[in-house]
Design a protein around this nucleic acid. Structure first.
Lengths: 252, 252
DNA sequence: GCATCAATTGAACAGTGTTCAATTGAAAAT
DNA sequence: ATTTTCAATTGAACACTGTTCAATTGATGC
């Protein structure tokens, strides 16, 4: 039998609980710390238990039936309280920008956990519901309803959260060395007979890639690219909102 | 020692190769088929070997040093030949639409493999280089250079590929039943004292979610939402291209 | 002092990725 | 015709994983 309640009960504890008292929240926090430190692929329930000085079964008792449940709890912890990051007085387009900047900032605080958040976005745990509500409310203020609301919502969530998922996706461990080495190696691999056009374009392509700094290095930032994406999306949605109100004047 | 070459050699085989002759391509295809059939989380190298009637070590010999390498090969196979899906005569904005629709279609043919593609997007294997080149060439025709090119490229790739990654992300296995059950259960879980506003908003929110059909069921499609996102993005980028050419008239 | 029961234990099961010294057997060399 | 070569495969082994479960602990309420 496992602890069922999501929130830690403040009720008086009995039995061994009062003495040792490992909390569900402590387990989740330790898991987050461990993933932050050593990466998601190096994370295991057994090592988590080891680092807590505890038997692996304890994790299950505190967190639920499976590793997925722990991941869900982690995602809920990280994206919790995100709706508070908006100014209720601001116009709806501005509120959307604030909320999505807050989402990106929250995920960037735990880049190694990013893959989990993308997957957990569909679970709609309670912790996420309020910030989903925030997005929906802003779009509602913009006049969106029905299919138009669905598309605007999906475009925003999918495009922006997807961007963050992509930018933080772990680059595969480089086989032998630097980015330059890998690119020139790839270039050498291209079969000139089968793909003459690609072969001809490759030097130019390599230059472009260097310009773009499409790599996972230390000095690379996607901040400006995200701002551009956010601007384009909110702008396009505002335009659609305007045409919507022209076509359907004040339904309901 | 493992087979190093990416492409299967057409050179005459010696030794046992000619008799049994399991190909690297065959291994990759079998892996794709298995992930398509049983899902990514149920996939293992051992069962892949089992289904091929072969020892697990064979996979390593054919595909390289680790499971990651197999995943890279799978991603390359699926996104290979994507650049061909464009009409060179069309204007650059239209070419971008064609290419990204082709990307989405290719990933939708293997929804279970989608998580791999998002991660593997940063590896820039040769198979992907040509369609990345396609995107870059279209943007170049639109007049983008330097930081503006980087941002337009990142916004497109991140937003659109991210959208596809998000829409195909596997929803966590529903604990007890239908979507409606889960939503009403979540609603019951919300602490009315701690979150009175959220509690009050939940019925409306639930309605909205039902309208949006934000679920992973059979009859749900993100086709229109993706089209909306694509329209907004390409439109916004076209606008930026126009302002670019005003500011920097024909540099170079 | 006793029963309760939240919290923990330790052992076990089935399965995983990965490595490696052996082995096969047809093609090439002699 | 025999030997050598070596691509391809094997089977066993190692260290590890997620998960389950019957036991055990020990402070609290009775």
């Amino acid at each position: 039998m496992s602890r069922l309640s999501e929130t830690d009960t403040a009720k008086p504890l009995r039995g061994r609980a009062a003495a040792v008292g490992l909390t569900r929240a402590q387990v989740v926090e330790a898991a987050i710390a461990q993933i932050d430190a050593k990466g998601l692929s190096a994370f295991s329930l057994r090592e988590l238990a080891r680092s807590l000085g505890v038997s692996p079964a304890v994790i299950y008792w505190h967190v639920g039936g499976s590793k997925e449940d722990l991941f869900a709890a982690i995602a809920a912890t990280i994206t919790g309280g995100l709706a508070a990051a908006q100014d209720p007085q601001a116009p709806w387009t501005e509120r959307l920008k604030q909320v999505f900047h807050a989402y990106r900032a929250a995920v960037h605080r735990h880049p190694n956990i990013s893959p989990l958040l993308g997957a957990q976005m569909k679970s709609n745990g309670v912790a996420n519901l309020d910030w989903i509500e925030t997005v929906l409310a802003a779009l509602h203020d913009g006049g969106f309803e029905g299919a138009a609301l669905r598309d605007a919502f999906n475009a925003l969530i999918g495009g922006l959260c997807g961007f963050v998922t992509m930018e933080l996706a772990p680059a595969p461990a480089s086989e032998d060395g630097s980015w330059e080495n890998r690119i020139s190696q790839r270039m050498a691999e291209v079969d000139a007979e089968a793909y003459p056009l690609t072969q001809a374009a490759l030097p130019q392509l390599a230059n472009r890639i260097f310009v773009l700094r499409w790599q996972n290095g230390a000095d690379v930032s996607y901040d400006e690219s995200f701002a551009v994406l956010l601007d384009i999306l909110i702008g396009g949605i505002a335009v659609r909102a305007a045409t919507l109100s022209h076509k359907e004047p004040a339904h309901g």
